[in-house]
Amino acid sequence: MALPFVRLPGTTGQPPYDAFDLLATMVAVVRPDGQCLFVNAAFETLVGLSRKAVLGSSVPDFLVDAQPLRDALAAVARNDYATGRFDAVLRRPPGSHPEQLPVHVIVNQTEQGDRIVVEMIEIEQQTRLDREERTLGQVEATKELIRNLAHEIKNPLGGIRGSAQLLQMELGSKELTEYTQVIVQEADRLQSLVDRLLAPHRNAQVVGDVNIHEVCERVRALVLAEFPQGLAVERDYDISIPEFRGDREQLIQAVLNITLNAAQALEPRRTAGDAVIWLRTRAARQVTIGKTRWRLALELHIEDNGPGIPASIRDRIFYPLVSGRDGGSGLGLTLAQTFVQQHQGTIECDSQPGRTVFKITIPLP
């Protein structure tokens, strides 16, 4: 059955396509030869090009193999069938992540024979949404576990430390007091760890207007001050991204934790002088985070050319006390995830040798 268009009362000329901007899937309206007449916001976001740049181009050419779509458009135009479906791979601009995106393509007739609707659905979209939902559930369970465990540790810790100090005062031997000093020092170290575990849940947000590029520039300055040799921190900003309401210091800490991890993992490349971290911002439209859909969101990509995250911990990097670095506390990414989620956002990670990308997504008003 041909797909009808509803014309608004009192309007004439071309059917309106604005409603397609409300969809999370990619939609293009094309001629039978594939020439683009309209693309929605999701199409713009996923191909990384503006609507103006896409209009007039050949939509089949955005696929790795253009022929199946050309054949489907010709068949629908001949009325061989009203709807065609097939799987394909979308080609994205160099530097995008990923550069190739598996999609399910649906080709539909319309009541106007020279207009065909092409819809593309990310094959991994549902998998990603399911993964986000599981992650949110795991995070809530982890937060509850951390709070309970921290309080259970903190209660006897004060007694242990106080008893060690009293015992130290009664001991006359310097050799024996060294043991009580070890007890006090280790109790203080555990107290510091507990405080860090509880910090995100204890401190209230200080909400104000946040410019994500000011956050990135602050982080960049701090990282370069700590690692002045052999490391470049490159910026690729979309300056059109608006300010939003949030806690600036929390976001600085979240981005700093991820970027410092990257800088530390780049030690061999820093020695060689070719270590690079990229801070890249983009605007995304019609984004689903958890079960909530947002019209606009910012994406901050923190990318490095390091060795990648070990496969043994790749699925657990946001869990507390999990670290791939000797001497690491395993709290940096846990805190970063907590701070981002307090802004209704998410963090995703994709890592392979030579390229690791953390993507922070935060909804915009």
Rank of each mutant, 00 (worst) to 15 (best):
A2K: 13
A2D: 14
T11M: 15
T12S: 14
P16D: 15
F20N: 07
L22N: 10
V30E: 03
C36H: 13
N40D: 13
L49Y: 14
V54C: 14
V59K: 01
D61Q: 11
Q67F: 04
D71N: 14
D71S: 12
L73N: 11
N79A: 14
Y81K: 14
A88T: 01
V89N: 05
G95L: 02
S96T: 05
L101N: 01
P102A: 04
V103I: 11
V107P: 00
Q112C: 05
I123Y: 04
E124H: 05
T127N: 09
R128H: 07
E133L: 14
R134Y: 12
L136H: 13
E140C: 02
A141D: 11
K143Q: 12
E144C: 03
R147H: 08
A150I: 06
G158P: 00
G162S: 15
Q168H: 14
G172P: 03
L176F: 03
Y179A: 12
V182W: 06
E186R: 05
D195Q: 11
L197S: 06
P200R: 00
V210Y: 03
I212R: 00
V219Q: 00
L231T: 01
L231K: 00
A232N: 15
A232P: 04
A232D: 13
Y237M: 13
F244I: 02
Q250E: 15
Q253Y: 01
T259P: 03
L260H: 09
Q264H: 11
A265H: 09
A265C: 07
V276Y: 04
V276E: 13
W278C: 06
R285T: 13
R285C: 08
T288D: 08
G290E: 04
G290M: 02
G290A: 05
R293H: 03
L296Y: 07
L298G: 04
E299H: 08
L300T: 02
E303T: 11
E303L: 09
D304N: 15
G306V: 07
G308L: 05
S312N: 09
S312F: 01
R314K: 07
D315M: 08
R316L: 10
I317H: 13
R325F: 02
S329P: 03
L331W: 00
L333C: 08
T338M: 10
F339Q: 11
V340T: 10
V340R: 05
Q342I: 05
G345A: 00
T346P: 01
E348N: 00
C349Y: 01
Q352W: 01
V357A: 08
I360S: 08
L364W: 04
